[in-house]
Write a protein that binds this DNA or RNA. Structure first.
Lengths: 152, 152
DNA sequence: TTATTTTTTTAGCCTAATCTAAAAATATTC
DNA sequence: GAATATTTTTAGATTAGGCTAAAAAAATAA
């Protein structure tokens, strides 16, 4: 009855993502995007079935129950919000941002997610402020590059 | 030779924090702040010892090696940066922010940490912009409160 | 339709991280 | 300094999440 683990959240999210791309999700697809072996997917799916979050008959497709889909969507929203913030506001390299968003997406609550999304939109709506923010970063970079040039 | 798990990072960070508060860290202290039982601390400490990150003689105090302290400081910096950002920029309740920072602190790299810190400082340095950001949030809140008053 | 390939499942093993119960060491109190 | 209390350690169990190897089912090709 406790909280769903972040691993199981990952499986739900992956089912949602695969469904969006290929209509239906299979064990193989989940194994690929989560980078685990098929038997690992199998046992995770069984757990999620017991929890009433996915449906799956043997050798068949995997689908989300309404409750499972709700959770999957929450995780996915957090993922998108964080990725967007990292890339667009903080200027993190998209590949590196992806890994970091995947890590963080299990830790934030809905209040925080909304605030982060609002912050991304704040900068998107106010190009002058976005510019000031970039200038602020550039100045700091310069400061760090001066200071300690060569070896002692 | 792979990466340190986030659990083991937590132990290193906790040793650092306890040392700051009480000069020396003991099993009991770590068990308390990490909310686990003493035998759990014991086996974690043994692993960290094998990895050359802590020093500990039986029934004695626990201390960080230089390498362990370096990692502990990195984790702690990420923790502080995230907590500050959540509370001061996003306005998250400090208690809730703590739990979320503890979750996220294992996922971000140094580039991201610096950027988040810079963003907190950007708002701290520019009170007019901070005000605009708060206004932006307030307006969104109003929009959400209007829209869909009662039940259909 | 039979043979081959692919996918999924089962069975069994492993590691990390936790726990409880009890033993051992250390610290405190009388 | 002996008795008591606290802390740490050991021993052994449990759970989550991963793996490999092999069996079973389904899909594809001949």
């Amino acid at each position: 009855m406790g909280e769903l683990s972040s691993k199981l959240e990952d499986y739900l999210e992956a089912i949602l993502v695969v469904q969006q791309e290929k209509k239906v999700a299979r064990v193989k697809d989940l194994a690929e995007i989560l980078m685990v072996r098929p038997p690992t997917v199998n046992s995770a799916i069984k757990k999620l079935e017991r929890l009433g979050l996915v449906e799956h008959q043997n050798y068949g497709y995997i689908s989300l129950t309404p409750k499972g889909e709700e959770i999957a969507r929450c995780v996915y929203e957090r993922h998108k919000t964080l990725l967007d913030f990292l890339v667009r506001v903080l200027g993190v390299d998209p590949k590196k941002a992806l890994a970091q968003a995947c890590g963080m997406e299990h830790s934030i609550n809905e209040f925080t997610r909304k605030k982060i999304q609002a912050l991304s939109e704040f900068f998107a709506c106010k190009p002058e402020i976005l510019k000031l923010w970039h200038q602020f970063c550039d100045e700091r970079k310069k400061e760090n590059n001066s200071g300690g040039g060569g070896k002692s």
